[in-house]
Design a protein around this nucleic acid. Sequence first.
DNA 1: TCTTAGCACTCACACTGTACGAGTGCTAAC
DNA 2: GTTAGCACTCGTACAGTGTGAGTGCTAAGA
Lengths: 345, 345
Amino acid sequence: MGLNERSLSILDAIVEGHIASGEPIGSRTIADRQKLRLSPATVRNVMADLEERGYLVSPHTSAGRIPTDKGYRFYVDTLLQVRNLTASERQQIEVQCNSGAAQTQELLKQAGRILSSMSNYTGIVLAPRFAATTFRHIEFVLLSQGRLLVIFVSQSGLVQNKIIQLDGKLPTASELQQITNYLNDELCGLTINEVRAKIVEQMQQEKAQYDAMMKDALGFSQEIFSDDIESDVIIDGAANILEQPDFIDRSSMQRLFRAFEQKNNLINLLDKSQQAQGVQIYIGSQVEFQEFEGCSLITTNYTNGKQPLGSLGVIGPSRMKYSQVVAIVDYTAQLVSRALKIKAE
Amino acid sequence: MGLNERSLSILDAIVEGHIASGEPIGSRTIADRQKLRLSPATVRNVMADLEERGYLVSPHTSAGRIPTDKGYRFYVDTLLQVRNLTASERQQIEVQCNSGAAQTQELLKQAGRILSSMSNYTGIVLAPRFAATTFRHIEFVLLSQGRLLVIFVSQSGLVQNKIIQLDGKLPTASELQQITNYLNDELCGLTINEVRAKIVEQMQQEKAQYDAMMKDALGFSQEIFSDDIESDVIIDGAANILEQPDFIDRSSMQRLFRAFEQKNNLINLLDKSQQAQGVQIYIGSQVEFQEFEGCSLITTNYTNGKQPLGSLGVIGPSRMKYSQVVAIVDYTAQLVSRALKIKAE
DNA sequence: TCTTAGCACTCACACTGTACGAGTGCTAAC
DNA sequence: GTTAGCACTCGTACAGTGTGAGTGCTAAGA
């Protein structure tokens, strides 16, 4: 029940034609520029067939055809030829990527900027999950009224902080210092997940029952590491969306912008892509979140040379220049990974 | 050359009518609902006068009049009556403001959310300038390759970090600890500006010339405190802008969204408002930044009970429900100030 | 059996003319 | 100084029309 050679070639031509022009594509257009010389009538028969199978629709009787989400999906999965970046494009990305990004956070912001400016769509970057990063340093600062500020630093220089409320007696400065030293010695180099495991393990050991300081330290730690710090997602070039003629109605744009603000569904998607291999392409209504109807999302993960840390990509209309954007996303992720690898060393 | 009683009343009616309906207001509408019983013809004469003075324009010959920016300015300065919030509105703000905002940053985000959701426009919050806050704690973490992560904590629990590149010999862990202790003892309780002054002062003292550790400490500090950490601005409910029928053309919306992303002009405006007293209203083209054409900005500052820390407000179309939004902005700032005062104690 | 030319048909879109109504400015009377 | 009346302007909504792009179907040709 697959499509034959000719249908494939016609579907390909329609999708690419529509991506390029934004207009519905008619049979004559295809017949004219097709290598296999066919008449418009023949093309029409094939198109009718493709429409019946759900790859195309015509917006109205006397218009050409445009791809459905299923059509895009098929195109992306089997027809898409990723074009190579030109030397100047590569250079442009490299320059921007190297420009003063001492801080990890800055590097990721810069990546978002590259993605949006090179693609003219919206760039998105999921910052590393804290749970996946490696512990480097912890610090406590006692604020007023029993509030304790905890600052973590990961191996790659990412800083996160959290305030916890202490009840009961407050530790003195020197006790706090002892706890700090203890935790820094014990936990350095472990991933947060390993840290969690270690705390549980130590709490069960008898010795912890008798050493008050240690008990405190473990008590704190458990509270601190108990819940995940929410992941952060960087969005750049949202205004580019307004340039896209595909979003005619305000309500669909608004839905998208609200999704940008709420972030959690975006995080879900990016998180999924982080666990996958290679470049992922999510298309409009085929994603479970309806706010992305009419949009496509091209993402891939970035690493520190060993394990995936987060993911980045581009969101734009379904009628997106896939072949170009895939190349941009891929190359940006490579550069970010390389930069993070250096930092982690 | 001022306006007489009657002109004022008519201008007021036109501005409020237009804010309520979004339509140009004609002479008959005014004549009908005016207290001082005047015929449409008389009203027309006054309107012609107001138009000549630049307070009104008519979009075309046979349309009613709409206020110019100058008209809005005049309305806001002399005619606007701020309405009181209802008990339920107040309560709504209070509830949201108190909901789990242990961290200053969270509190400010929450304030942004309140501003946007209560006004249906876009909420903006300028986070406290680091320079204006009070030093509480500093911490160093040595990363790889001579990069030094510096973490500051302000009195109110705001955390900022910065990476500096060390060249020459690196300090050992214990030297770093000494420096940390030294700085924490010396600088605690000072504002960042005072910190700067103190560093310069100490560097000039002879003793600094001979004590290597101290020299290092002062050298670091100078680099760290030399440039301002860029202020942060929180924007919430940008998608609400898309709901406003006033922004018909995409280009003006896009300009605004780009301004939201670039932030620096917004920071400039908010910073100005921070230095002023009370609620400030900026109207469209009267602001030096042209990306805010067609928009108005209502802002005020918030404090920690003593000095202004930052500012917050609402951005929306010039045709904005001023009387309501002013009340919302004012009350939100009061609550934020109160919450920060408690934290600072 | 596949391909193609021809033809009738559909439909969006652009253009035209028309009627309507809202609102204006001006003038003259009160 | 105020107002009624009137002629005028202009945007908008509506209906009618022509055009062109593109289709589906059918029948003839390879």
